[in-house]
Amino acid sequence: MPEQPLLELRAVTAGYDRRAPAVRNASLTVAPGEAVGLLGPSGCGKSTLARVAALLHRPDSGTLLLDGAPVRRWRHRAPRAQRTTVGVVFQQPRLSADPRLRLTDLIAEPLRATGRREDVPDRVAELAAAVGLTPDLLGRRPHEVSDGQLQRACLARALVLRPRLLICDEMTAMLDASTTAALVAAVEDYRTATGAGLLAVGHDHTLLKRWCDRTVHWDDVTSGTSGTSLEPSVPSAM
């Protein structure tokens, strides 16, 4: 028997309106330790698929398997252990960070939410160093740092529970070249150390080809059925 995939999406259809789903019949696998790049034009529904894979959005139909086990519940209803297997980083750091939390608390929040308070000082210091945040930045709130610095904190937050699968949804689309390279390097360091899998969603072939072991195009994922942008595009992704 071949190695069991870490993540497997089978014929997933999902969206915000049942009559016009953003994702139709999408299938995709990520093997343990593998880095998969999902390429697609903006507005095609790939962010919705990323949310399904992160257990944040319940699909209308289809199956999601994590470690071979089918996922039956989503969001709060999903078992906590299953939810925290997947770490997720979104495109816009401003919207992904609670504006009231200092960066330290932002990074530590998942530890506190899962009752691992005692790990906070060590893990935060370790991850801040890994993503290149200096101690003086950790004491600031989101509106006092730049987009790049905030995205570093969001990546640290995604890694703080040591997920076995990391989903990066257009993580670097808003960032400059150097910050992009730094964030990708931080993700790769983490994957080398832990053997975690990666699903990187984006539209930049050059970046994803360089970053990932394997890239798949949206049209191939949704195999034949057109999920790609019909002209009056549904603003589904965000």
Binding site: G132, T134, S146, G148, Q149, D176, A177, S178, T179, T180, A181, A182, V184, A185, D204, T206, L207, K209, R210, W211
Partner: peptide, 18 residues
């Protein structure tokens, strides 16, 4: 450094932050 950070070049970040 900025150019060398591009994914079709060295893809190495500039150390540190501005």
């Amino acid at each position: 450094g900025l150019l060398q950070a591009l994914p079709d070049r060295a893809f190495t970040p500039i150390p540190g932050m501005p």
